[in-house]
């Protein structure tokens, strides 16, 4: 009896694994394709039907993706796109962490008149779709002289976003208020409490907010499409689209090699932090 129970359990586990492996393959598919293209010779990148395993493995593509730049061809080295994306990610993530933690501290740990109303308004702004704001914001950035610079794509991150404020506020509220009181008795200012009590405990939540923002920037297409003008300033998303839409000889393999190089660290990062990441979201408790 006990043995058969164990056996069913084993069978069940095996079944789950089977399903997981099959689904993994399905979800890995795009990445595998990217890797496969990254090591192809150029004339095999556009075959119909696609060829998965290249006739020759062009490992040199990775090196070339870094160095490939030809003024005479008018191409931009693909890594430039990666670099621009990273610049935007770094600046945006830093801004998100700094600004939202400050704001969330005010919403989650301090008492002030009108707080709950302000918080409700903040939540409501999550429903405003970007297209509504697109035209006036464009006009505004034009007045600032920011069109064609990176600023429209990262400066707003330094002024908070509703979603991140919400996540962090939930988390901050779960930190025992006794800690604040104790620090206050020790003569700590609010800033001191924020900096030495709350922030060190909030790392998982900050990581979540940072990663979400990172991915948002990473995948953003509409923003760069509107604000960036010069090919030298394009991000990966926009650069990839540029080469997809042109008739000319697209260096798909190099493009994919560049993408792979840029994407690899993020995958590794996610792999090693996913547990904390998920715990971080758990602790923010989206339960409202």
């Amino acid at each position: 009896m006990a043995r058969s129970h164990k056996q069913t359990q084993k069978l069940k586990t095996a079944g789950i694994h089977l399903v997981l492996v099959a689904l993994s393959l399905l979800f890995m598919f795009p990445l595998l394709w990217m890797l496969s293209t990254a090591v192809k010779p150029i004339d095999e990148t556009m075959l119909q039907p696609p060829k998965w395993i290249p006739s020759v493995f062009m490992w040199g593509n990775f090196r070339e993706a870094f160095t490939y730049s030809s003024d005479t061809l008018g191409y931009i080295p693909f890594l430039v796109y990666g670099r621009n994306t990273l610049i935007l990610c770094i600046l945006g993530v830093a801004g998100t962490v700094v600004s939202n933690s400050l704001v969330a501290y005010a919403f989650g740990r301090l008492k002030w008149p009108g707080r709950d109303f302000a918080f409700a308004v903040t939540l409501a702004t999550m429903m405003v779709p970007f297209p509504v704001l697109m035209v006036p914001i464009y006009g505004m950035f034009k007045e600032f002289g920011w069109i064609g610079t990176f600023k429209p794509l990262w400066v707003p991150a330094w002024f908070g976003s509703a979603f991140a404020i919400f996540l962090l506020r939930q988390f901050f509220r779960s930190i025992p208020f006794e800690l604040s009181e104790a620090a206050k008795l020790d003569g700590c200012s609010e800033w001191g409490i924020y900096w030495s009590v709350v922030m060190p405990l909030a790392k998982p939540a900050l990581a979540v907010v940072a990663l979400f923002h990172f991915m948002g920037t990473w995948n953003d297409f509409l923003g760069p499409l509107i604000y960036l003008l010069d090919q030298k300033t394009f991000t990966l998303s926009l650069g990839l689209q540029v080469f997809q839409s042109q008739h000319g000889g697209t260096q798909w393999n190099l493009l994919m090699a560049a993408s792979a190089i840029v994407v690899a660290p993020i995958i590794v990062l996610f792999f090693f932090t996913q547990k904390q990441f998920i715990e971080g979201i758990t602790m923010t408790g989206l339960k409202g």
Partner: peptide, 28 residues
């Protein structure tokens, strides 16, 4: 004092809300 501190802590969002949300919404 607490309200003043809160105002300072929330100031990035107050500015952000006014500049990147309230103004464009009205303009729109």
């Amino acid at each position: 004092k607490e309200a003043t501190a809160a105002f300072l802590f929330a100031s990035p969002w107050l500015i952000g809300f006014a500049v990147f949300l309230a103004y464009p919404l009205c303009a729109s």
